[in-house]
Computed example of a mutant assay.
Amino acid sequence: MALATSSLLQVSRIYAEDAALALPRGQEIVARWPDADIVPVASHWQIPEVHGDEANVRRWVRIKTEALVLGVKKSLVTRPNGRSADFIAPSTANGCAMACAYCYVPRRKGYSNPVTVFANIDQITRHIARHIAKQGEKTTPNQCDPDAWVYDIGENSDCSVDALISENVRELCDLFRMSPTAKASFATKFVNRDLLDWDPAGRTRIRFSLMPAETAKVTDIRTSPVSERIAAINDFVEAGYEVHVNFSPVILTPTWLEDWAELLDELDAALSPVAKTQLAAEVIFLTHNEALHDVNLGWHPKAEELLWTPDQQEPKRSENGAINVRYRYGLKSQAVATLTALIEQKLPYCRIRYAF
């Protein structure tokens, strides 16, 4: 596995729980950055220098670049989902080296939230393997997949970036390659071509997140360019991955519909016949958060010109009780219908798994 030498990860400090350092995976990660300072911490959740401190906003990107956290995942729970996947698997990482302005993960852990890697990968894979075995065969097709139980393995991180740091993601994909009744799934905004050598045998679904390029330049900070994500799809299909797309988040800029038409034309022109036959999409409109809006004003106010539009938005209470904002009901329902019709026109072979 190639070590990340780009500007995305230049790790100089590793905050580590003792239990994580005692495990082989923790030791392997420390060895990848031998010059990094090791900072002992009692809990990966409570590191004021890294997250949870409002003053860190000014150092948002630097923290994501230079800091890495090693922890142990203590609660191993596989949750039902039913939308993007049948189940949400326990995370093997939390946080991200990228810095998308709309990302929901900082709302939970706080502010910069660099990558935390969980070193107890053996416990996590055993838990998932037992859960897969307990399900048996999938006998009723659904929007997640007609035949396999789908497990999202990247709810709180980007697995393509995580794979630059450790073998956790590869070990999960190897588990699903040997699981004829289940598939792994994760969304990504980063093209990691090391994954092309993994031989997933169709048991891992990668969902490349796409949006119009000009919008992404403002909101998708430190990610692979949208054109690079599109160009990678055929190669990943050829390498044995199932590849879907996430049209997400859909942001209602003044030129949003024209921009999406251009993006869909670019995607159609780039895809191979094989990629087209297996393509499906999720369509997710922007949900934002007032606290995140306030944080973004401290480091990237230009993004908030696109994301925070009170004349278009209304409050929405999330499942965990947080107050978010989304596009007003009538505006959003009309925009969903308009965009899905455009997708059906431009990409008639692309099944829309859900849109909201």
Rank of each mutant, 00 (worst) to 15 (best):
E171T: 14
R83K: 14
A133K: 13
L306S: 04
I221M: 12
R326T: 01
S227M: 10
A93V: 08
W256C: 11
V169Y: 01
E49Y: 08
I153P: 05
H51R: 09
A119L: 10
K183D: 02
L9G: 01
D259P: 07
E304Y: 15
A280K: 02
L9M: 14
V218H: 00
P310V: 13
S272C: 07
I124P: 06
S160F: 13
A163F: 08
S166L: 12
S6H: 04
G136R: 11
L257H: 15
F87P: 00
D37H: 03
G202H: 03
V39H: 00
A67Y: 00
I128N: 06
I343L: 07
A16R: 07
A89W: 11
D265Y: 02
G136H: 14
C144G: 11
G154C: 10
A341F: 04
S84M: 12
A133V: 14
L252I: 13
L331W: 02
E28V: 13
C350R: 02
A232P: 04
G52M: 09
V105G: 04
A20N: 02
C100A: 10
Q313A: 13
Q143F: 01
I132A: 06
K109V: 15
K276C: 01
D145N: 15
G52A: 08
T125S: 06
P301G: 01
A67H: 04
N81M: 07
R58Y: 00
W198G: 11
Y354N: 10
G321R: 04
N113F: 05
R193A: 11
R62M: 03
D268H: 04
H288N: 07
S179N: 04
K138Y: 15
N156T: 07
E262M: 14
N168V: 08
S333D: 00
V161F: 04
A16V: 08
D152Q: 05
T5L: 12
A280N: 07
A213E: 14
A322R: 13
Y151R: 09
F118M: 13
D294G: 04
V115G: 00
L76I: 14
P90H: 05
A93N: 08
L297S: 06
L8G: 12
A291F: 12
D86W: 07
T139D: 15
Y151L: 13
R32V: 07
V77C: 03
F236N: 01
E49D: 15
A119K: 02
R32P: 00
D197I: 15
H300K: 13
L195R: 05
T78P: 00
I230Y: 04
R126Q: 15
E167K: 03
Y241T: 01
P310D: 03
F186C: 06
D294W: 11
P225G: 01
I124S: 03
A89D: 04
R177V: 09
H131L: 11
D162F: 08
Q135V: 02
P114S: 05
Q135N: 06
F208M: 11
I29C: 08
A85F: 12
L175A: 09
W308M: 09
A337T: 11
I121S: 03
P212F: 01
Y354P: 00
T140S: 15
L286K: 01
A19S: 15
V30G: 05
H131C: 06
C173Q: 12
R193M: 12
A335R: 07
E238L: 06
I343P: 01
V50T: 06
N289T: 11
G154D: 12
T92W: 05
V77T: 01
